[in-house]
Design a protein around this nucleic acid. Sequence first.
RNA 1: UGCCCGGUCGUCUAAAGGUAGGACAGCUGGUUUUGGUCCAGUCGGUGAGGGUUCGAAUCCUUCCUGGGCAACCA
Length: 560
Amino acid sequence: MISNEEEVKRPLNFIEEKIEADLASGRTQTVVTRFPPEPNGYLHIGHAKSIVVNFGLAQQYGGKTNLRFDDTNPEAEDQEFVDGIMKDVSWLGYEWAGEPLYASDYFQQLYDFTVYLMKAGKAYVDDSTQEEIAAQRGIPTEPGTESPYRNRSVEENLDLLERMNKGEFEKGSKVVRAKLDMASPNMHMRDPIMYRILKAHHHRTGDKWGIYPMYDWAHGQSDAIEGISHSLCTLEFEVHRPLYDWYLDQLPPFNPRPYQTEFSRLNLNYMVMSKRSLKKLVLRGYVNGWDDPRMPTIAGLRRRGYTPASIRNFAEAVGLTRQKSITDMSFLEFHIRQDLNKTAARVMAVIDPLKVIVTNWPEGKVEWLEVENNPEDPESGSRKIPFSRELFIEAEDFMEDAPKNFFRLSPGGEVRLKGAYAIQCQDFVKDENGKVVELHCTYDPATKSGQDTTGRKIKGVLHYVSASEAISVEARLYERLFNVEDPTGDTEDAFLDNLNPDSLHIVQNVMAEPSLATAQVGDKFQFMRKGYFCVDPDSTPGKLIFNRTVTLKDSWAKSN
RNA sequence: UGCCCGGUCGUCUAAAGGUAGGACAGCUGGUUUUGGUCCAGUCGGUGAGGGUUCGAAUCCUUCCUGGGCAACCA
């Protein structure tokens, strides 16, 4: 069903193979997947992979995908996150089937199933304390022991269940457990907890429920109720699979019967990805919120200037396997450059301005030169930029004592100003600290861009702005948030020691060409020779703020 | 040291007993009015041993090694 003829043939990944086998065998008629976030935080690039996998696979096989909030823990969850998650999924370009769904929609069915299991003698109410239950569970290398409450009568269990739900008992005083096998080598099978008493207010069901289901009890049954054909999750749920199957085995059959398949989660080097860690960065103020452009959250990437297509392409290119992996940040950067190279308009902005006086250019004269907007996109047209006697170039583009392979400006040297004329440096002025503060150059009228009659080959091409027309903007330059490949350490907070103290540089008085004055929040540009930038929402009518999404590849900088 | 899963270029990922290939990163060079893009080339890998086979990344076996599991979190 990969119907696009132009699509290059790609070998199937292991989940596609399963799906095709299931379709062929009749195990399932249509592919129904789900994306099941817990609304207790913001989505990150790792979730983006899961979104692309779930929505992408369903799309590919003509099926559908549910968005289901796994809202079984009211103590951690909040409507704010529900809204944020829906925004992010939509922004990535996916449409879920029908309305958003919630595990809490199934609380009644789950409760009825529990009654069913209790009547079958497969679930019981346990009065043990949290500590006692932990002790009963034993350790992985040794079997556990059975709870003294394990063999309560069906009647007593049903009565207690009802009263737990009514709120008659204190939080933590009782739980509902499945009656499985305390000697199982799989810890998750040692009479897992199905329900706990929680007095918290639920963001959707309010105070209706006194007990809340645990993940294992809620998840598989929610899948089954929704008719999910393929329940895809990450590797850490692998040991839960026997329990997922066991619950389904105890209940009347579902058709289709969902089954769980695990794949490896996405990790990036120089980044942390756990929700806990990200939350800590936000709460303790190491970054400026969930949408800080240094964050790997969808919201952060969006604000940074990443496009939905670049994230989708990245997620697809990373692939789908069961091997633990840490993907190179440069792979993500490759995909945003690839997208923006084709779509972002080129403009000129000087981040660290150095004044240039064109001594043989008439005082007060301004010439408007036509330059193309994007050489990669013939449809993008052109615009006019001003040239005058006083210009700014990038300070790093001038060197007093330049090595032979420095193609830029140096005393006596000549460069082309992009889209304008060639200039030659005649003289330069230093301040009292020895810093070069002004260049005196002459231009050659015969070298006008597009009409150069000199036949001279000029290697260096610089970006520039005309001083009188330039607008002053702010640029926020981002470096990696962490300065080691794997920031996670041995302790919970160890990653904080690996924070890069220079991950954000705010630069004022960046001199930008006047066409930028009308830029809107979210607009994306290539600042020629400097990188891709987008307009930050912090911008005000009087002051534009640009986030650097990613630098251009720079083989000169690299070799120095 | 119980159970489960995994080990292919630096990274990610193909090869379903038959030439170990691609992408990213790196390095060379060419084109270029962005030291960008584009193009060409190049470097570089099956964790180890044994076995089966005409032939093994793939099957068997021993070992080595990485990860997950002992929340009333998901």
